[in-house]
Design a protein around this nucleic acid. Structure first.
Lengths: 217, 217
DNA sequence: GTCTATACGTCGATAGAC
DNA sequence: GTCTATCGACGTATAGAC
């Protein structure tokens, strides 16, 4: 992920390892995007790439670690492209992420499968990855929420950390419901948080400044 | 589920089928509650019950249908016991359901696994069961929300059906996060919906009655 | 109807040859 | 680095005992 940028510029000889690893991940992402996580056995992924399934285990310790790496790589590849406008709110970011996710149902399926695996195991690659990932995601959203609060866009009588967990949960859960029944209005429902989180018009309101100076802690 | 009550009271001879089926489900629920969904292979469940694994397939068409039946039966068994106080709000009910769920992590794991399976398959028992289940759950919560709105407990500027989907999603997602990291305050975060959904103090407010007359449709 | 025994194909994983 | 061979466990199907 970050490590290879320090390696691939070298002589080109032993960089083939990480380059090949990346090729495998890129191709595996396509497999998931096209066929979903149904044909996701190690042997079927290997066949789609054109190698034996044991070859994959030379780059990844297990099937589970391969799948986690695929999801991580897909997320990273996608996140690289377009920057965020500075004025985007926390809900704005959730909405865009969800919009992009539903375009690739196979990856949402993969996400759901891996989270279920993480819940079921005593310990393992999935568990550690997703525990950490939820933690980071919650922290990011909480920071945006605090900025939104400082800007007067979000009511201040709620705890940003709790709302962050709630937003992540709602986003995940709504994507699940949407995949099962597309009549569930994913984006609209996420947008409903705008109304729930906006400061009440006649509220007490001893807000410090009208805008502009976010007092981050 | 409802069908057997019309059968088991009969002569007692051919009712042994559904009785045995029920025994299997009861024992399987214990297995999941004790060991989670890790040792959830057909063969391991059969061993815990004390029969060969093929015996299970005489009562259930496949492993997947057995697992769905286990979850359904566990949910039904639990729901039988205690009635709801009439004054409980939609959020109250979510909170109690979540409180009971986290007492049996194995069943939450099973739920998560089955939902992931439902998302991954083109069609199948899990997909149909959970699509329908989400639909029913959303409708129930939406009805409670509309009652809460009529009672003046929930703001009326939001759509009950959308909020229902949001509440189900948040509840599912928060249970997932809680299982991975118990520092996430599941109940408190669900309770935060009370503040988000309560009518704003100084809002426009052309509410019909102060309380007391829920106009159910 | 209830259940065991057996077999088939596939799975993730390992060991060792080239 | 990639292969073949092999392992035990899996879900499923079938035949037949009681």
């Amino acid at each position: 992920m970050a490590e290879d940028s320090a390696v691939i510029g070298r002589s080109g000889s032993y960089s083939t390892g990480v380059a090949r690893r990346r090729e495998i991940l890129d191709r595996a992402i396509e497999v998931f995007a096209e066929r979903g996580s149904d044909g996701a056995s190690l042997r079927q992924i290997a066949k789609a790439i054109g190698v034996s399934h044991t070859a994959l285990l030379h780059y990844f310790d297990s099937r589970e670690q391969l799948l986690v790496a695929v999801y991580e790589h897909a997320e990273w590849t996608r996140g690289e492209t377009h920057p965020w406008p500075a004025e985007a709110t926390a809900v704005d970011r959730l909405v865009r992420a969800a919009t992009e996710n539903v375009k690739v149902p196979g990856l949402v399926q993969l996400y759901s499968t891996l989270v279920a695996t993480a819940l079921a195991e005593e310990s393992g690659a999935s568990k550690e990855f997703f525990t950490r990932r939820f933690e980071v995601t919650r922290e990011n959203i909480a920071a945006w929420l605090r900025r939104d609060q400082a800007l007067g866009l979000v009511r201040e009588d709620v705890d940003a950390d709790m709302i962050a967990a709630m937003l992540v949960a709602a986003s995940d859960g709504l994507q699940t419901q949407w995949l099962l029944d597309s009549s569930v209005s994913l984006i609209e429902t996420l947008r409903a948080f705008d109304a729930l989180l906006s400061p009440c018009p006649g509220a007490a309101a001893d807000r410090p400044e009208p805008a502009d100076a976010p007092d981050r802690d």
